[in-house]
Amino acid sequence: MRTSWAHYCVPKFNGFCSFLVNPLFIYLIFDDTKLMLGNYRWLLLFFAIFNMTCSVADMLVPVCVHNYRHAHAVFISGGPFENYSELNQLLLAVRCGFIGTTYGILHAHFAYRFLVLFRNKQLSNYFIPYGLLITIFYCLFHLSFWTITCYFYIGADLERKIYMQDPIMDIYDVESAKINMIVALYKDGSEIAIRKSITGIIANTILSVASVLIYTIIGFLIIRKLRSNTLLMSKKTKRLQDQLMRALIVQSVIPSFVSFAPTMASWYEPIIGFHLGRAVYYTASVLVSTFPFFDPTAIIFFIPSFRAKCINFGKNLITLGKAGKKSKGNNTAQVISRNRLQLS
């Protein structure tokens, strides 16, 4: 399949960065002795594991997005699962499901910060194991919901693949019938294909919009509580809550720009009839892979103790590198000196 360098390289680069940052992030949350994260560290661990799982999905099931006339299409653009099979078609639906699961992860973070302020005693007593199990099942619900809609409703049957045949062959040099595709067809198709497409897109839209509204409302309540005079917390604890809230805000902005907005634009571009060009195809498929890398980076950046440890770690690496070069230079000088003595 013929794709752009961005579709081939960027997800792999982001996956590499994800497997550098997330293990570092796990080390920071369990090595920390100042922040007193408590049970929150287990939620952060789940978050980091999900990020790395998402990166594996990005690399094994890379996707392209392409809109043509009255249809929106997503298809596997390479890797071991490129050729069509029912299993690979299901994997494509699961890959799309990871997009929806990011909303579940964000809800869990916002809900935890909310409960710290409003129900801290109950949270301390019941989060392990009940709260963590609820979080896992809630994220599985989002994953399952998206997988079902993408497989049973938007999954491309032969009719929808034929509709996309010409542009897929002209641009990507592959037959649409031989690849795994998700196609939402809004017009110029059979009644059942159009009805299933619209049902799947509307279902995902409702869940996505509701998800954004949920963490926006919870975030507003948290900020209002932090700024109120009724909050009984030490200055240090309140400062930590402020830092974590700023990190959460950035965490919520990242998927809004790299996931929510591009997917909405690509879904509804064929309906509106306004052609956004190739940019939406890159953002809808390539930028999604940045989420597992940027999200833990946001937390590290906004928590001063984490940021300081990373800076010190970088300085130590530079120092070791300079020491190694100096040691190598001294050894070389000693060898040259001995050779000169032997010659004389």
Rank of each mutant, 00 (worst) to 15 (best):
1 M>L: 09
8 Y>S: 14
9 C>S: 12
10 V>E: 01
15 G>T: 07
18 S>M: 09
24 L>Y: 14
27 Y>Q: 11
29 I>K: 05
36 M>L: 09
40 Y>T: 01
44 L>I: 01
49 I>V: 15
50 F>T: 10
57 A>N: 10
58 D>V: 00
62 P>F: 10
65 V>F: 13
70 H>Q: 09
72 H>P: 01
80 P>G: 13
81 F>K: 13
92 L>C: 03
93 A>D: 09
94 V>E: 05
95 R>P: 10
97 G>E: 00
98 F>A: 02
99 I>L: 14
99 I>R: 02
100 G>F: 02
101 T>G: 05
107 H>A: 09
111 A>N: 09
113 R>W: 09
120 N>R: 15
126 Y>H: 15
130 Y>H: 08
132 L>M: 13
135 T>H: 13
136 I>A: 15
136 I>Q: 08
140 L>I: 12
146 W>H: 00
147 T>I: 05
148 I>N: 04
158 L>K: 14
161 K>Q: 07
163 Y>A: 03
166 D>Q: 13
178 K>G: 01
179 I>V: 14
183 V>K: 04
184 A>L: 03
185 L>D: 05
186 Y>P: 02
187 K>N: 12
193 A>T: 13
202 I>C: 07
208 S>H: 12
215 Y>N: 14
218 I>Y: 12
219 G>M: 03
223 I>P: 02
224 R>Q: 13
226 L>A: 07
228 S>L: 02
229 N>L: 10
236 K>F: 01
238 K>C: 01
240 L>Y: 00
241 Q>R: 10
245 M>Y: 07
247 A>T: 06
251 Q>V: 01
259 S>K: 04
263 T>Y: 07
267 W>P: 00
268 Y>E: 06
275 H>C: 06
276 L>Q: 06
276 L>S: 03
278 R>Y: 12
278 R>F: 11
279 A>F: 10
281 Y>A: 06
282 Y>W: 13
288 V>G: 04
293 F>Q: 05
293 F>K: 04
293 F>M: 13
295 D>N: 14
303 I>W: 00
304 P>G: 04
310 C>M: 13
311 I>P: 04
318 I>G: 03
325 K>D: 14
330 N>Y: 09
333 A>Q: 11
334 Q>C: 08
335 V>D: 08
338 R>H: 11
340 R>F: 12
